Amino acid sequence: MLRAYKTEIYPTEEQRKKINQSIGICRWLYNQYLGKNQELYKQFQEGLISKKEAKLNANNFDKYINNEIKFLEEYKWINLCGSKARKKTICNAETAYNRFFKGQSKFPRFKKKNKSNVKLYFPKNNKTDWKIERHRLNIPTLKWVRLKEFGYIPTNSKVVNGTVSKKVDRYFVSVIIEEEYKVEDKPYTKGIGIDVGIKEFAIISNGVHKKNINKTAKIKQLEKRLKREQRKLSRKYESLKLRNKKEKGKATRQNIQKQLVKVQRIHQRLTNIRTDYINKTINELVKQKPSYITIEDLNVSGMMKNKHLSKAVAQQKFYEFRVKLEYKCKLNKIELRIVDRFYPSSKTCSVCGSYKKDLKLSDRVYKCNKCNSILDRDYNA
């Protein structure tokens, strides 16, 4: 089976320069592809061309760049990035545009400098590519790069491909390896049910309550610090505008970039804490070896439309929790049951099965009218 390993790397100054250049080229190609298709789609809306002509596929755009653009004197810098990384970026842009073309999503966003997650794709073409040692690995075009975590990626393993990415001022490598995964032979316990929410992250049928980590002092302190740093950044932008007016566009950004990195670091820290909490929660559930796990099919996009709850819902990362739980269940051969989103789990008594029609959202305790059982609303669900 294929398994991914992601870790931080310590590239040299020369390697950093090459990574930054390649990321910039891939970002430019992604935006150019979307720009071309945006023009074609406008022509289709005006009735100038047919719907088939309103989409330029990745292969034709790659040929257009290779045969017409990169030979021009002002676009020779395109060759500084590897051909495979360029082609993969265009394919990613095509996937995003196809979703819009089929009516599955809105028009893809153009990638902004230092604000978008652009990855460099490198396949394994030669024997020396993606060679892994305890403390370093050989990345195509970049050569040997030092790893932060020694021995994390298994040595002498078969690498299929990998990507290099940059977040804030740190560099990461993700490697896809072909390996065998052994499932521990433990006796299966009875199944468990999970009810995720905002008040508490997850209430499990075995009586365990997983708290909402966004209500902890650590997260609140970081969010307070983030607001403070964002205000500083906003003031720097405002002062830059005033100086540009006085000096007629001669003022430089000076310390704005440093302040931007500070803000991005706090954002990344918050993301890491929340992701780590989800990973640990899933690991605890899977380690119990239940015969099945039951979760509700939540309408997260619908919940996000509520302006009072959208921020709290986004912070809980329900979708990420479900995707990772599905993967872990598949890996450990545990059945995952998805309950229909319209099934009235909160209004149905878990003891006698009677249905309580007049249950309100404000009722946090479930009181059954038939068997007189009193349970916490989420635990009953």
Rank of each mutant, 00 (worst) to 15 (best):
N98H: 15
T189W: 02
L222V: 09
Y121E: 04
N161A: 15
K210G: 00
N299G: 01
L80C: 02
L260A: 14
G35Q: 09
G24Y: 07
K158F: 02
R364N: 01
Q43I: 12
G24V: 11
G193W: 09
A251L: 06
L233W: 07
E296P: 06
K307A: 10
N161C: 09
N67R: 03
K119C: 14
I78L: 12
H308Y: 10
Q43R: 10
K262R: 06
V118A: 07
T275A: 04
F110N: 01
D185G: 09
K220R: 12
G82C: 14
E39Q: 05
V323K: 15
Q32M: 13
Y171A: 08
I192N: 10
Y319P: 05
K167N: 12
T163C: 08
N214T: 14
I374S: 01
P140H: 10
E133W: 12
Y33R: 02
D340S: 03
K227T: 12
L331V: 04
L142F: 10
H135Q: 13
G24M: 11
R364F: 01
L137C: 01
Q104N: 04
V263M: 03
Q254L: 11
K6P: 01
L285F: 13
D185F: 09
R3M: 00
S157L: 04
T95S: 15
I153W: 03
Y355S: 07
A202I: 00
E53D: 15
Y277E: 03
T271W: 05
S239D: 10
K305M: 13
L34Q: 03
F318G: 02
E94K: 10
C329S: 02
R170A: 00
G35I: 08
K236W: 11
V300P: 04
Y327M: 03
V168M: 06
Y188T: 10
D195Y: 01
N212V: 09
K258A: 15
V351W: 02
K232G: 06
D195I: 00
G207A: 07
A314C: 13
H308D: 12
C352Y: 00
V173I: 11
W28H: 12
N299C: 04
K131N: 12
K102F: 07
N60T: 10
E180V: 14
N66E: 08
